[in-house]
Deep mutational scan, measured.
Amino acid sequence: FYCSMCNVGAGEEMEFRQHLESKQHK
């Protein structure tokens, strides 16, 4: 899983979902 807007990668879907819901996500 990879967030191109934030340049952030996650190994698991749960981690990626937490990123999308976090304040760090743009």
Rank of each mutant, 00 (worst) to 15 (best):
F1A: 05
F1H: 05
F1W: 10
F1D: 05
F1T: 06
F1V: 04
Y2H: 11
Y2K: 11
C3H: 14
C3L: 01
S4A: 08
S4T: 15
S4E: 09
S4F: 03
M5D: 06
M5S: 04
M5A: 11
M5K: 14
M5I: 10
C6T: 00
C6N: 00
C6M: 02
C6L: 01
C6K: 00
C6P: 00
C6S: 02
C6H: 00
C6V: 04
C6R: 02
N7M: 14
N7E: 15
N7Q: 14
N7P: 04
N7V: 13
V8L: 14
V8F: 15
V8S: 15
V8M: 14
G9E: 15
G9Y: 13
A10E: 10
A10L: 11
A10I: 10
A10W: 15
A10G: 07
A10C: 11
G11T: 12
G11F: 05
G11M: 06
G11Y: 09
G11E: 13
G11A: 07
E12C: 06
E12G: 11
E13K: 10
E13T: 06
E13R: 10
E13D: 10
M14S: 10
M14K: 13
M14F: 07
M14Y: 05
M14R: 09
E15N: 05
E15L: 06
E15T: 04
E15F: 02
E15C: 07
E15G: 06
E15V: 08
E15Y: 05
F16G: 06
F16D: 05
R17E: 11
R17Q: 15
R17K: 14
R17Y: 05
R17L: 11
Q18S: 09
Q18P: 06
Q18E: 15
H19I: 02
H19V: 02
H19K: 07
H19N: 05
L20C: 13
L20F: 09
L20E: 15
L20A: 07
L20Q: 12
L20H: 13
E21W: 00
E21K: 02
E21M: 04
E21V: 04
E21S: 09
S22K: 01
S22H: 02
S22C: 13
S22G: 09
S22L: 05
S22R: 03
K23N: 09
K23A: 12
K23L: 12
K23C: 09
K23Q: 15
Q24K: 14
Q24N: 11
Q24R: 06
Q24D: 15
Q24V: 08
Q24F: 04
H25V: 04
H25L: 02
H25F: 04
H25D: 06
K26I: 12
K26Q: 09
K26N: 07
K26E: 09
K26Y: 10
K26H: 15
